[in-house]
Design a protein around this nucleic acid. Structure first.
Lengths: 216, 216
DNA sequence: ACGACATGGATAGTGCCACTGTCGATAGTT
DNA sequence: AACTATCGACAGTGGCACTATCCATGTCGT
């Protein structure tokens, strides 16, 4: 197929497709002649993947490049693909590294949850940065809620993984699933959180009741 | 205090502070003379708030302006402040509106959870957009996991609200808490999700595992 | 009191990013 | 043969978040 057809089927302009090929987000098409090329189904898929990461996930082009490189390399195991996707997310590369107290609080939380994770997990720095910001705003009570958030996060992660493993036999398909799931999952959970927030706010008696009730 | 002191205490350059005042993110300082002004503690607080929204939350300046306007207006009730904050989040303003099937799926989910929400809740469109993207990638099995995600989201929302209501007597403070909590909460949950993902991936005995390598 | 230095306010400029437009040579289409 | 589409290279655009420059006016140390 030629570029205009690919453009139609993917909803992306020919100019942008050329741009993506230049940037290494999309593999070059097979040459069928001196000056002609042919795009295939894999380009349609890849384009959908790229648009999902850019439009929905908000990833910058440079991160997308790193992600697709990992997806395309059969040497890279699935778990590492997930790590690459996690690092690619716009997870606030700290202008200043998180403070020691916040890092410690995060490690405490991780230990309390019985979690075992690598030291370079981007979530660690990200959570610590949030805690730093919170205390900079003059608040401290976030720490009380952390275990609740952690339990919810674990439930989310279990669901994430359950959606991935069924495909695990097909490495390429799984790699895409992991990447899309990692990126879209954040947006999905954030959206559901907004809905749930409104529901809870409506159905909570606003009598300043310190509803310290345990979320199930 | 003068601008240079405010700059030091907030970690923001004088040039940026001037910019924020021009953009309406920061109220003008009180004039103490023909050509001199005096910044107060409220400017320090506001600057921390703005930086939190911009740096951690990734909000564009225009959205921050809308948010602080709602925070500053005593007429605006807390629930509406939360709505403004939700709308301000970079929640993927759809290039194309979500498809009918996805919207229906979201409404089904909401009904199944027993949630009652406003039709314009930004989470509805956001979740529908994620579903659209998912099916565009050729997958359908996300729908099975939705109730799990929804339950986790509700747990998160309950914790969110529990952190806010204790302050509800002080409307201004609560407004800030709501805004910061709404924005930082997304980042917090996303970070915890990354940690939990690694933990779950490590501790799940998955027969299809090709590697027990950890994410880099 | 006086001079070096900082401040406030206005305006123009910078750097980055994600595209988008233009061009000339060539290929397919009728 | 006429006409449109395509390829590839490269320059240009528009949006955004600052940042630099000016200069008339203040403030501070001695």
């Amino acid at each position: 197929m030629r570029i205009s057809e690919l453009a139609e089927r993917s909803g992306t302009s020919p100019a942008t497709i050329k741009f993506y090929v230049r940037e290494g987000l999309l593999p070059p098409a097979a040459k069928t002649g001196y000056n002609q090329v042919s795009y295939g189904e894999e380009h349609v898929r890849r384009l959908h993947l790229v648009r999902a990461l850019v439009d929905v996930g908000g990833l910058p082009i440079s991160r997308v490049r790193a992600v697709v490189a990992a997806v395309d390399d059969p040497q890279v195991p699935l778990t590492e693909v997930m790590g690459v996707a996690q690092h690619a997310l716009p997870g606030r590369e700290a202008s200043s590294p998180p403070s020691d107290p916040s890092r410690a609080a995060v490690l405490d939380l991780v230990a309390a949850q019985g979690w075992a994770v690598h030291d370079g997990n981007p979530g660690l720095a990200q959570v610590a940065a949030v805690l730093d910001t919170w205390v900079a705003m003059g608040r401290k009570d976030l720490f009380d809620g952390l275990p609740h958030y952690a339990r919810a996060a674990e439930a989310v992660a279990r669901t994430d993984l359950a959606l991935v493993w069924p495909d695990a036999a097909d490495r390429d398909r799984s790699a895409e699933t992991v990447v899309v799931g990692t990126v879209l999952g954040d947006v999905l959970v954030a959206g559901l959180r907004r809905i749930a927030q409104e529901h809870v706010a409506r159905t909570t008696s606003h009598s300043h009741s310190h509803s310290t009730e345990e979320p199930s």
